[in-house]
Computed example of a mutant assay.
Amino acid sequence: MSYVPVSRRTIRLHRESERSTRRLVAALSGVAIAAWLLSVLLSAAVSVDGFVHDVDLVVHDLFLVVAFGAIILVDWHGFLWLIGRRTLGEIIRLDGAATPLIWGGLAGMLATGVFLSPHLDSPMTEVKLAAVLVLSLNGIMLIPLMRRLARLPARIAFKDLSTGQRVHLMSCLVVSQLCWWTAIIIGFINAQS
Results as ranks from 00 to 15, higher is better:
110 L>Q: 04
151 R>F: 08
91 I>V: 15
51 F>G: 11
131 A>R: 02
98 A>N: 05
99 T>M: 08
144 P>R: 12
65 V>F: 11
57 L>D: 03
114 V>T: 03
93 R>M: 06
47 S>G: 10
130 A>N: 05
145 L>T: 13
111 A>W: 09
60 H>P: 02
144 P>K: 13
50 G>S: 10
96 G>F: 08
122 S>W: 06
51 F>M: 15
70 A>I: 07
138 N>A: 14
88 L>H: 05
67 A>N: 05
139 G>W: 00
60 H>S: 06
137 L>P: 03
146 M>V: 10
114 V>W: 00
49 D>C: 04
130 A>S: 14
149 L>R: 13
105 G>K: 02
48 V>L: 06
106 L>M: 15
123 P>I: 05
45 A>D: 14
143 I>V: 13
112 T>F: 12
60 H>K: 09
78 G>E: 08
123 P>N: 07
94 L>K: 06
72 I>G: 01
149 L>Y: 12
66 V>K: 04
117 S>D: 09
61 D>F: 08
125 T>K: 02
137 L>K: 08
53 H>E: 11
120 L>V: 07
75 D>N: 06
86 R>G: 04
135 L>N: 01
122 S>D: 14
127 V>I: 15
146 M>R: 12
59 V>W: 07
47 S>R: 15
77 H>L: 11
153 P>V: 01
92 I>P: 02
81 W>N: 00
90 E>Y: 01
48 V>D: 01
135 L>R: 02
102 I>D: 00
48 V>F: 04
105 G>A: 11
52 V>Q: 09
140 I>H: 03
124 M>I: 03
77 H>S: 08
148 R>V: 13
100 P>A: 14
120 L>Q: 11
96 G>T: 07
116 L>S: 03
77 H>V: 11
95 D>C: 07
71 I>L: 12
81 W>T: 01
134 V>H: 03
142 L>V: 04
66 V>Y: 06
53 H>Y: 14
76 W>R: 10
66 V>D: 05
147 R>Y: 08
138 N>S: 14
63 F>P: 00
46 V>P: 05
46 V>N: 08
133 L>F: 10
153 P>L: 02
146 M>A: 08
127 V>H: 08
142 L>N: 09
97 A>N: 05
95 D>L: 12
58 V>S: 13
116 L>F: 03
105 G>E: 05
83 I>F: 07
121 D>E: 09
68 F>Q: 03
111 A>K: 02
148 R>G: 05
89 G>Q: 01
101 L>I: 07
100 P>G: 14
101 L>D: 03
128 K>S: 08
100 P>D: 14
54 D>L: 11
117 S>R: 03
50 G>Q: 09
92 I>D: 05
85 R>S: 12
139 G>A: 10
61 D>W: 06
103 W>D: 04
121 D>Y: 03
153 P>W: 01
84 G>L: 12
77 H>W: 10
132 V>W: 00
151 R>G: 10
149 L>D: 08
139 G>F: 02
45 A>M: 15
134 V>Q: 04
148 R>Y: 11
102 I>F: 08
132 V>N: 01
54 D>C: 04
125 T>F: 10
72 I>V: 13
69 G>Y: 02
